[in-house]
Design a protein around this nucleic acid. Structure first.
Length: 942
RNA sequence: GCGAAAGUGGCGGAAUUGGCAGACGCGCUGGACUUAGGAUCCAGUCCCGCAAGGGGUGGGGGUUCAACUCCCCCCUUUCGCACCA
């Protein structure tokens, strides 16, 4: 041997680690823990491409480094194996998804294992394992058993006073009138408060997939998976009350060490806004005064009542500018306000919008449509009668599903008003520069004085803040009052009259949790049947001791296109009797996100058959200290699991409020797609690389390469097996990191891989004797030799830099440092053994197989997995004489050698004395000299 | 449209607090060793220029002795959201 033979070395060491269970993690209160987690993969049939192991490589390097620093490391791996793709594939091929899932997992496990990651494989599991499903269902039932008490005050672990907490449903106060109506009513009342609840609401129905989808799974009116059209359908579905946790989900972001962009996205997704709810009277005109007086007495009611239209606005200060109202077409009061002669037209518009797909609705945005109902509302601030319209630009699912339209100060309202000739009334004074800009866009001679008259001609609404105008009644005036003060003033006035109140809304909707699909966890709920055998609307949870509820074996698991989903066809499975009563099982399943919502907790105690995890182990390992994965999960998985975690926290099952302390998103790895002059994609096998250019091996034509996202259709997917087979795992891992910063998007280059491969070969030859058949040291490596000054300086500078880089996950620069080290020491006649040992230890987290082998060559019997990380001595990196650049007017003109401790004056003297500098200063006057000790000298002359 | 991030050689990318721009690698050029080189080693490689010298971190301005780094304006790219009242 031994020329460097990665495959032999790698398979041998992987076997060694596996047989010795080198990376098994056990709780040890004497050692500081660190929990490092990868977002576990979905085992697809295609297996892993070179993009997948990027994050895994980073976490593995970090974990191996931390073990050498003496930390107790938890680093597990598993599979998120329920979900649509496996099921779609199963349907296409007729194979049961359990079979394909098992096959895909084996393949991915093989791929991951051959990269030599230091996972504790004893903790491996799949979300589809019956034992895991059991506890996923257990958590669902915990959600079902919990209600959110918005008034509950408590102190969080950081000592802050908090408001709003999940509590056991048994603690929900039952109002006397409900209790008086009997046990069934109490059950229904409780059901309406649970965090897991059924509700009939407009949902995203995707007929191609035969299931409903969560808002987060719909992109521009199409399904995220498969890009199929999605429509809005009214269906009874399971929801999780994530909106109850909206405030806490936003507030607690502050405590997290996450990328600012991801926090921002979550904040935007929750979309919390503050404003006011305002009631408009829609009854007879002469009834308005009576209505107002009764409101002044009763105050603002929880529910608006029959002759009232409730709106939500973030700009209550513009109430005097409301010139019309708009209801969502689906709003329940549409019938009530519609005048007889308008019914046909209104019905037609409602039918048209209902039939529209989400995609069409998104596409039709901008071109406002709507119909006048013939009805009127009375503006509570001034008694003005204003028309009520319906239009699809108002969403039924946000706020109250109705708005007051202020066209002067809202762009959407203005577009609508201009289209239908509705009046525009200015109530906020825009600043002068806005007026000037608006004037440039068409309005002539626009000033604060002429603005109210000309506001209807302007193409743009002024939506900003400013002093109020035309906004006064007998009791209150907002004229001249800045927006920030006007809002609370008018809200307080409304509240006094029982006409409105301050309110906050979120863009976030409750999480639509049921799917009409086969390959997911069954929802463990039973529907009670009446004596005639029909569901009576009462439900009960499956007993905890009965969990897991497993999927029935079925030949035909195709989507049915019906709300019941394919499980409805499992006739025998559905019917159950409990306590002498007949029930039907819930036939909907959970979405794919369910399993990934809590897997990080199960990893703390994955084989526990008594409970989801041992609280003591949870307290030891949690929270996850470093979580690495793709940014595509910014609002889906990461928001959902934070929500579940908070519920688990409220119910006392976890000790931390947040699951993931530090989050890092690895960047996407791009690939180059090569096309010929006709724009046709040429596959890799058929390409010849010469002189840095690419040629079609068949035609000889030059090809153009473009860096693009890897995708099957572009034919540019590089399976991870390709670089592993050609160069080995250590090279592959190393290149994954050497490409650039972990977080940035970067292109894969096969030539770049070659570079790191050369580096490992050079490292090998630096230490190992290539000529010898046995594993023997290179003759230049000298066991007894004491490193000289320069060698010590290079060594310790390397240790210092690499250590810093490992801490900050800057593996690309860490590798560069090691390359410099090798460049330096291969040029040495003698290589002191202790320098070589430190090098091998530093290389070990990144290229562990070759490092273990070289460690053995250096005479060690034990694996280096737990060998102490080299420590750096500042005394060796300090130089007594430093080489300092001298600038003249900011340009480097020479260098001087000065004592590292030299004072400003000494440096100045040396600089001015340097002959080259003197030449540059000829004929000029030195005006100023800046000397930074140990850094540089700058002479200002002129 | 709104929000966020980023623009540095032929390419991927380096540059603690403002202090030598281009570390390291790829590619390329020349050389050595070789039957051979897609192995290895040595040297060179930001641009213009024979050189002296000049220019240079998307563009324009500013602060400073000194700006990739800080401030203002603009351009481009990527990502996220997108009728959320």
């Amino acid at each position: 041997m031994p020329a460097y033979d990665p495959h032999e070395i790698e398979s041998r060491w992987q076997r060694y680690w596996e047989e010795n269970r080198t990376f098994r993690a056990t709780e040890d209160s004497a050692k500081p823990k660190i929990y490092v987690l990868d977002m576990f993969p979905y085992p697809s049939g295609e297996g892993l491409h070179v993009g997948h192991p990027e994050g895994y490589s980073a976490t593995d390097m970090y974990c191996r480094y931390q073990r050498m620093r003496g930390r107790n490391v938890l680093h597990p791996m598993g599979y998120d194996a329920f979900g649509l793709p496996a099921e779609q594939y199963a349907i296409e091929t007729g194979t049961h998804p359990a079979v394909t899932t098992e096959k895909n997992i084996s393949n991915i496990r093989r791929q991951i294992k051959q990269l030599g990651f230091s996972y504790d494989w004893d903790r491996e599991f799949s979300t589809t394992d019956a034992e895991y499903v059991r506890w996923t269902q257990w958590i669902f039932l915990l959600l079902f058993d919990t209600w959110f008490d918005p008034d509950c005050e408590w102190t969080d672990p950081a000592g802050r006073r908090r408001r709003g907490k999940g509590r056991p449903i048994a603690e929900l106060p039952i109002p006397a009138p409900v209790a008086a109506r009997g046990e069934d009513e109490v059950r229904r009342y409780r059901d309406s408060f649970r965090l897991a609840y059924q509700a009939e609401s407009p949902v995203n129905w995707c007929s191609a997939l035969g299931t409903v989808l969560a808002d987060e799974e719909v992109i521009n009116g199409r399904s995220e998976r498969g890009n199929h059209p999605v429509e809005r359908v009214l269906l009874r579905q399971w929801n999780l009350r994530i909106t109850a946790y909206a405030d806490r989900l936003v507030e607690d972001l502050e405590t997290l060490d996450w990328p600012a962009a991801i926090k921002e996205m979550q904040k935007n997704w929750v979309g919390r806004s503050e404003g006011a709810e305002v009631d408009f009277h829609i009854g007879a005109e002469d009834d308005f005064d009576r209505w107002r007086r009764s409101r002044a007495r009763s105050g603002f009611p929880e529910a608006p009542g029959p002759d009232t239209l409730r709106v939500y606005t973030t700009r209550p200060d513009t109430l005097f500018g409301a010139t019309y109202m708009v209801l969502a077409p689906e709003h329940p009061l549409v019938d009530r306000v519609t005048a007889e002669e308008r019914r046909a037209e209104i019905a037609e518009y409602r039918a048209r919008t209902a039939a529209m797909s989400e995609e069409d609705r998104v596409a039709g945005r901008g071109e406002k449509t709507g119909v006048f109902t013939g009805g009127y509302a009375t503006n509570p601030v001034n008694g003005n009668r204003i028309p009520v319209w319906i239009a699809d630009y108002v969403l039924s699912s946000y706020g109250t599903g109705a708005i007051m339209a202020v066209p002067a100060h809202d762009q959407r309202d203005l577009e609508f008003a201009r289209r239908f000739g509705l009046p525009v009334r200015a109530v906020v004074t825009p600043p002068a520069d806005w007026l000037k800009l608006a004037q440039g866009k068409g309005g002539a001679a626009l000033t604060a004085d002429t603005y109210p008259e000309r506001v209807g001609e302007l193409p743009e609404a002024y939506a900003g803040e400013g002093p109020g105008m035309q906004s006064a009644n007998d009791e209150i005036s907002l004229d001249g009052v800045p927006t920030a003060e006007a809002k609370p003033a008018i809200t307080a006035w409304l509240a006094r009259g029982g006409l409105g109140r301050a309110a906050a809304k979120t863009r976030l909707r409750d999480w639509l949790f049921s799917r009409q699909r086969y390959w997911g966890e069954p929802i463990p709920i039973l529907h009670e049947l009446d004596s005639a055998g029909n569901p009576n609307g009462l439900i009960r949870a499956v007993g905890l001791e009965e969990l897991p509820v497993l999927l029935p074996e079925m030949e035909d698991f195709k989507p049915t296109g019906k709300p019941g989903g394919p499980l409805e066809k499992a006739v025998a499975w559905i019917r159950v009797t409990r306590d002498g009563k007949e029930y039907l099982r819930e036939t909907n399943t959970m979405p794919q996100w369910a399993g990934s919502c809590w897997y990080y907790l199960r990893f703390c105690d994955p084989r526990n058959s008594e409970r989801p995890w041992d609280p003591e182990k949870e307290r030891y390992w949690m929270p996850v200290d470093l979580y690495v994965g793709g940014a595509e999960h910014a609002v889906l998985h990461l928001l959902y699991s934070r929500f579940w975690h908070k519920v688990l926290f409220d119910r006392g099952h976890v000790s931390t409020m947040e699951p993931f302390k530090k989050l890092v998103n690895q960047g996407m790895i791009l690939s180059v797609t090569y096309r010929n002059s006709e724009g046709r994609i040429v596959p890799y096998r058929q390409i010849r690389f010469e002189e840095g250019k690419a040629f079609d091996a068949e035609t000889g034509a030059e090809l153009t390469g473009e860096t693009e996202k890897m995708s099957k259709s572009r034919g540019n997917v590089i399976p991870v097996d390709v670089p592993i087979q050609r160069y080995g795992s250590d090279t592959t891992r190393l290149y994954e990191m050497f490409m650039g910063p972990l977080e940035s998007t970067k292109p894969w280059s096969m030539q770049g891989v070659e570079g790191v491969s050369r580096f490992l070969n050079r490292s090998w030859r630096m230490i190992v004797d290539e000529e010898s058949d046995a594993l023997r040291l290179n003759e230049r490596v000298r066991p007894g030799a004491a490193p000289d000054r320069e060698e010590l300086r290079v060594l310790h500078k390397t240790i210092q830099a690499v250590t810093q880089d490992m801490e900050s996950l800057s593996f690309n620069t860490a590798i560069s440092r090691l390359m410099e080290f090798v460049n330096f020491f291969t040029g040495r006649k003698e290589r002191p053994l202790e320098c070589m040992e430190s090098f091998v230890l530093m290389l070990a987290p990144m290229a562990p197989h070759i490092a273990e082998e070289m460690w053995r060559a250096l005479g060690h019997e034990q694996s280096l997995a737990y060998a102490p990380w080299p420590s750096f001595e500042p005394k060796y990196t300090e130089e007594s004489v430093v080489d300092v650049p001298v600038q003249v007017n900011g340009k480097v003109r020479g260098r001087i050698q000065v004592d590292a401790q030299a004072t400003r004056e000494q440096m100045e003297q040396a600089a001015l004395g340097d002959p080259r500098i003197r030449k540059h200063l000829e004929g000029t006057t030195v005006r100023k000299v800046i000397a930074i000790p140990g850094k540089l000298v700058n002479i200002v002359a002129g």
